[in-house]
Design a protein around this nucleic acid. Sequence first.
DNA 1: CGTGCTATTGAGCGTGGTCAACTTTTGTGG
DNA 2: CCACAAAAGTTGACCACGCTCAATAGCACG
Lengths: 245, 245
Amino acid sequence: MANKIIKSRVAQNINCFNCCSRHLCIAGGSLNTSEIDYLNGLIQKVVILKKQEHLFHAHSEQKNLYAVYKGSCKEYWIDENGNYCVTNFYFPGDLIGLESISDRTHLLSVVALEPTELCVISLNDFSLMQEKVNILKRFIDITSMKMRNDRSAKMGVTAHERVSDFLLNLISRMLERNQTINHVPLPMSQLDISNFLNIAHETVNRIFKNLARQKIIKIQNKVLTVLDISELERLGRLDYSLKKD
Amino acid sequence: MANKIIKSRVAQNINCFNCCSRHLCIAGGSLNTSEIDYLNGLIQKVVILKKQEHLFHAHSEQKNLYAVYKGSCKEYWIDENGNYCVTNFYFPGDLIGLESISDRTHLLSVVALEPTELCVISLNDFSLMQEKVNILKRFIDITSMKMRNDRSAKMGVTAHERVSDFLLNLISRMLERNQTINHVPLPMSQLDISNFLNIAHETVNRIFKNLARQKIIKIQNKVLTVLDISELERLGRLDYSLKKD
DNA sequence: CGTGCTATTGAGCGTGGTCAACTTTTGTGG
DNA sequence: CCACAAAAGTTGACCACGCTCAATAGCACG
């Protein structure tokens, strides 16, 4: 596999000010212009990944945090018995690598689900940021929100609930990204979803088909369209309307 | 229910230096004496809870973070359909309230499983701490570790795996607290465990009995004794030996 | 234009959920 | 301290949800 391409953000015309996901990323919250300017100056590089290309592998040294700029990624690990375990999906504005900061070793692997670009926050830059209290507060807020979000994606008891909750979680994340409920990207395979939810992939497929037959959702070309959100909420245990604000 | 008792740490002779869980709490890591001294000066109060008494309820304003000093707590919420959902258990050295920092509103409720004492870190104190870079780094490390730990408690696919993983997770946390594998406290009910793991409580009971019959564990008076750790690891998907260091 | 991955559908069966009954433990008030 | 009530734990029977296996169709990549 080709080595991943790293370019300068300036050359790619990427910066925090014109980034349409910045409200979800570090540059969001209540940071003022000069603080974002400072951030923007620190973050110099972008990694450009092709589909299926790894951002990093588990057990490697963690040198950076990453913020998804464009595209999407899958996080996974291989357990002691050789099982492939999908642990998360990342979309524009999400920070990758937070759970590894404490020991600077990646616990998990991350791979691109489609052509993807990620801003590189070196841990050195991150140390510098720690001098700026407001930026650090923002960082802590993001970590706190991530914990909430991770809890809600796979909570249901039954397979129907779990699939519904997964979709509701995706939908609420896409709404945060100013997408519409009529066009929610599903870049991951049903196999990935089934693995993430601890459900057989045949079951995931049957539930998708079921929901489609009941005209609750429609899936075409890796794009989800929600036809009856209130019915989907009834099936899941999450209430996305609570998280809309 | 009686209002919770709040006392000064000094009066209770509690401080970060003589706390036997400090290596897990904010005062651990590589903080030096003067930094811990600063921390210790900021944290003035202890909350003392009786069994079944709430530390806070979901939807209330978050005024503090809490560090368990002694005892244990259960975290839960009530979903839209009225289901009681256990989301975590906390032991000495654990920080409570991290996922609520971003909007200063508790997402979850926390209740004591036994007589419990918690150090109170007001969010004001927390803001002050943010001026001390090393303390904040330590805080971020803890958050990062919490994310790892939360992932590992309920990972298995089958009921046997999930119960085994839950026990392995508890064991590894107790080892961090200098407890022995022969005396792991189980202050929560089997009902709580079943709810946390999304498993029927009858199933949890049967699996405990099974493990006991196979002489892998023994449970008496809410205390777990591990008789065959390698067999327990084989049944679960976690490898506690990886986390012993 | 094949080769391999992903999606789809069917049939059979086992894990574990549900319901029910009972015992044991814990907590509360007389 | 005992009596009673409530909660927690235990055990058995039943059966359904969802897993496994299998076979085929669609799709994407070289």
